[in-house]
């Protein structure tokens, strides 16, 4: 399969199946014939709990391998890469934002962002300066404050800054508003979208919250994209 140069994400004939759990209990299965996302584009994937949203993000991020099919990030087939090369490619090309932010506890706001640069081997004076600028542009002034000392809203912005630190092609957001109240949720989505737009990164948000739909021009229901997705025992979130 040849990738289109303007695509940030191109999924083709993706099939994933968790092993059967025995005793007649069927394993979870996900089939996605096609999904594309252009550079700088935003997409909201909505789906009920257990329909495989997080599994899809893990497949895109190369954290788990599909049974078959391909996931192209830019021009690179993620699953053609192995081991450290895939890890480094993930760090450089994909930013991730989580429901609980998953910031490194005990680290400062700036260190959380620098950790992303460090793990992707992109630490330089220039990238460090950019990390500081990024945090400030997101309204974080106390760069040396430990993340536990920051408000929930500030932590969310640090998580966004970390996701964008390596100037990724694609940002994946997994239920980014699930732990926020409606006002903060609205704000978080705005921050995330603005930041990605400013950095030119494509944004794929997965959520079970239908109220987010009004903020995204392109939105899809995951179940409608998948073929014969089955949810039984062992269903994934």
């Amino acid at each position: 399969m040849s990738s289109h140069p303007s695509f940030a994400l191109e999924i083709a004939r993706l099939h994933f199946r968790y092993p059967d759990r025995g005793a007649g209990k069927q394993g979870f299965e996900l089939q996605l014939p096609s999904l594309t996302l252009r550079r700088g584009e935003e997409l909201l994937l909505v789906g009920r709990s257990g329909c495989g949203k997080s599994t899809l993000l893990q497949l895109i991020a190369g954290l788990i391998d599909p049974t078959s099919g391909t996931v192209q990030i830019g021009a690179q087939d993620m699953h053609a890469l192995k081991g450290a090369a895939r890890d480094r490619f993930r760090g450089r090309s994909i930013g991730m934002v989580f429901q609980t932010f998953n910031l490194l506890q005990g680290f400062s706001a700036l260190e959380n962002v620098l950790a992303a640069l460090l793990m992707s081997d992109l630490v330089s004076a220039e990238s460090c300066a950019r990390a500081e600028t990024l945090l400030r542009s997101l309204g974080i002034e106390r760069l040396d404050a430990r993340v536990e000392e920051l408000s929930v809203g500030q932590q969310q912005r640090v998580a966004v800054a970390r996701a964008l630190a390596c100037q990724p092609t694609l940002v994946l957001a997994d239920e980014p508003t699930a732990s926020l109240d409606p006002e903060n949720a609205l704000n978080a989505v705005r921050v995330l979208r603005d930041a990605c737009r400013e950095q030119g990164a494509a944004l794929l948000v997965v959520s079970h919250d239908p109220s987010l739909a009004q903020h995204f021009e392109r939105r899809q229901i995951l179940e409608a994209l998948t073929v014969g997705a089955s949810v039984g025992e062992g269903a994934r979130a």
């Binding site: 450290a84 998953n102 793990m119």
Partner: peptide
């Protein structure tokens, strides 16, 4: 485990 998982997502290899 959580710290390791975060670092892995950020690009750290298993060896690292």
């Amino acid at each position: 485990r959580r710290q390791v998982a975060i670092l892995r997502v950020l690009g750290a290899s298993q060896g690292r």
